[in-house]
Amino acid sequence: MSLYFYYLQILFKSQMQYRTSFWLLSLGQFFIPFSVFAGLYFLFEQFGQIKGWQFFEVALCFAIIHMAFSISECFARGFDSFSSLVVNGEFDRVLVRPRSTVIQVLGSKFEFTRVGRLAQSIIVLIWALANLSIDWSLMKGPTLMFMVLSGMMIFTGIYILAATLCFWTIQGLEVTNIFTDGGREMAQYPLNIYQKWIGKFFTYVIPFGTVNYIPLLYLLGKTEGNDMLYPFTPLLGSLFIIPCLFIWHHGVKHYRSTGS
């Protein structure tokens, strides 16, 4: 991890060499999800509620998912742009270095300008929490934090899977954006507003439901029966990254250089 933080320090210094550009890009990232949130706001202004969910309840869901996505997009960007390493033959250099390929790819690129998207999500989170009557307990605070961290792990796992495909396809596949950008757009609403098969897929296959729906019910006091397991669902969702890492190592073993 010392190597990872060294990568982090170097890339941060390099991006801060052009500070005006950095802050303008960060400002742009602030307004990108703002337009999406504005659409959410006007939707509820028109209809009032969606399947029993009020505006600030969905705003809380929105904030959590976008926080998780922005953190993952910042620190796991190396996997999102991994295809360039394969195309240019630069992954060969990664393999001969005596360090984990995961750490090296993670450290190959950081997008610190995503701080703008993160800031907007934090503002929405604070606004939503200020307008919700949540009966806070010893478990609800950590649950909220684990929802964000688990979402970050799930998005990172999807980036890893998309990068692993590049060992066979060379170029990255745009279809994987269905589960990154599409997953973000889908998960900013509670899962029960969709058809049942969508809810099951995004709970048991790609576990966004363990981040944006099941623990959200617990935070808002909407659970039925025993609610002792609800706070731990984000931890279960974070385990999604483990099979992703196994698949990655399987792909590394089958890597064939492009000869570039």
Rank of each mutant, 00 (worst) to 15 (best):
S81F: 15
F110W: 01
Y41A: 09
F55M: 03
V96F: 14
W127I: 14
E45Y: 09
Q17D: 13
F55H: 02
T233M: 07
A68I: 04
V175G: 06
G157S: 01
D92V: 03
T180A: 12
G183H: 03
I160Q: 04
N212G: 01
F22L: 09
S70F: 08
F91T: 02
F246I: 10
F179Y: 01
F155V: 01
R99N: 15
G89Q: 07
T164R: 05
S238F: 08
Y230L: 07
L216H: 02
V94I: 15
S150F: 10
F79M: 03
D135T: 15
I160R: 02
G182Q: 11
Y41Q: 12
A187C: 01
S121I: 05
V94C: 10
E185Y: 15
K200N: 13
F5V: 08
T164E: 09
F202R: 00
L95V: 04
I126L: 13
Y194M: 05
Q104Y: 03
K51I: 09
F30Q: 01
I134R: 08
C166A: 06
A59E: 04
A63D: 05
S35W: 09
Y41K: 09
S100M: 11
F201L: 07
L43P: 09
W248T: 02
L25N: 10
E57D: 07
R114I: 00
G221E: 10
A76G: 11
R19G: 10
T101C: 12
Q49A: 08
I50R: 00
V105R: 00
L239S: 08
L245K: 08
M16A: 14
G199W: 11
G107C: 06
F5G: 01
H254M: 13
V115T: 08
G199I: 09
G237C: 08
L239F: 10
H66T: 10
P243N: 11
K253F: 05
T210H: 08
T180D: 14
F47A: 03
T164Q: 04
G28S: 09
Y218R: 02
A38W: 12
F37D: 03
G39C: 10
Y41I: 11
R77D: 14
L125P: 00
K51S: 11
M228P: 00
F240H: 03
V148D: 00
N88G: 13
M152W: 11
M139L: 15
F47R: 03
Q15M: 12
S260L: 14
F155Y: 06
E90A: 11
Q54E: 14
